[in-house]
Design a protein around this nucleic acid. Sequence first.
DNA 1: CGATGGCTTGAGGGTATTCAAGTGACGTGG
DNA 2: CCACGTCACTTGAATACCCTCAAGCCATCG
Lengths: 245, 245
Amino acid sequence: MAAEAKKARKNPQDSIPSLEELSPFDKLWRSTKQLFKSEGIPQNLPRGHVVFMHEDKASKFYFIESGWIKLFRETFGGDEAILDVLPPGSVFGETAFCESGLYTYGAEVIEDCRIISYPLSVLEKETWENKDFTIAFLQHVAARGLARDKEIELRSVQNAPQRIGCFILRLCREQGNATSLCLPWEKSLIAARLGMAPETFSRGLARLQKDTGIKIDGPVIEIPNIKALARYTCIACSSVFPCTN
Amino acid sequence: MAAEAKKARKNPQDSIPSLEELSPFDKLWRSTKQLFKSEGIPQNLPRGHVVFMHEDKASKFYFIESGWIKLFRETFGGDEAILDVLPPGSVFGETAFCESGLYTYGAEVIEDCRIISYPLSVLEKETWENKDFTIAFLQHVAARGLARDKEIELRSVQNAPQRIGCFILRLCREQGNATSLCLPWEKSLIAARLGMAPETFSRGLARLQKDTGIKIDGPVIEIPNIKALARYTCIACSSVFPCTN
DNA sequence: CGATGGCTTGAGGGTATTCAAGTGACGTGG
DNA sequence: CCACGTCACTTGAATACCCTCAAGCCATCG
């Protein structure tokens, strides 16, 4: 039974999201993408492959056709902070040309990927020359900053079970308030994404089960009472459940 | 003696930084500012004054002539996460027109301020119409996102004494590697800025004193051995001491 | 069948928080 | 000039939270 669930894992989110859910930049980029088509180089990459490292010289940016990518920073002490985990349809490495020309984080494949690389130069050209594109790109970069602000808030203020609850609620919303859902990746990776040890994640889920009535069966989670979960979680946040930022 | 120090506190950084230290956006904005001059409305605000709240409708952005401003997010539970503390010469509220038209954080005066407000519309107009400005603004917004990435890394990976040491090293660098410096604000505010309780800050400083040889006299800090401090601190970071990102 | 990997659970320890009390500097008003 | 209150800061003790280490479970795979 957990086996079926695991096979089902990839399904809900392994397709590129529909147009309505996309940010202005993603929308525009998908329509502009045709222009870049001849420049794009597709690659299939296995789990564990490092696309680029923090401070590598940046000449390309990437579009994820399928699979998942994690963005991270690594310290000299060997610890790693995960900044984000990107679903299919996302773009990464795209802001390098606004910065020093170096990537400001590392990117690694966490679920076998098909990605397409494009020269940053075409993006840069388009950004300076196409006004609609400029606007959309600026909004895109601003949204990224905003998402990080939110992330700082969550990591400072929420405890472990609340961070997990918040993560589940986000999944829930992305799937039309489904009351049953499947975790998109390994639990240990979600734990890292949320800035906690795998054991803490495991205990946190158990705690949520006790306190908010959710039911857990391997990677499958049932949420009989979304409001109870939101009450428990959103008390430690600046916005309440059907939240977008 | 601590009294003199306290009086001295504001001096080192209470003037607007010189041109060389400014980001491309700040540089450009300072030269463009003349264009907006007639639109600017100066205000003197006392400590504690809230300039705007998270999710207020945004119609203006602000330039800090003197004093300090903190940017923060507040949860329903009453906790507060400080995103940044801005020195004179900074601009805030400027990205609102790229987002939903609402401020995405609150801003509060922490040291009596003189700030100048400008309509966001003039900034927006300039951004779309002046290409140099567009580029500089895009870099500015990207740099803000990068700073937040770094912040996430530091908060996930560093312990309390290391975060304090990192903060001190940053001050140090901003003042030309001075071996003696004065904390720019109250310790309790620095603690909040670093995401820890005031007591933890106090104990962390004591710990640094023991482990790295720095000397503490009220708000004044002596650093006889910068390298020792850097060794202690930067092990839990992706970059080493004379770091800019 | 054993090996592996993801996950869970328990025990122990470390770090940070909270609560509480105490100190010293400063400003006010008698 | 001194008594008093306020405020920032420090220190101690108790607690909460999370991490690490270790063992064990279960499903998968060769």
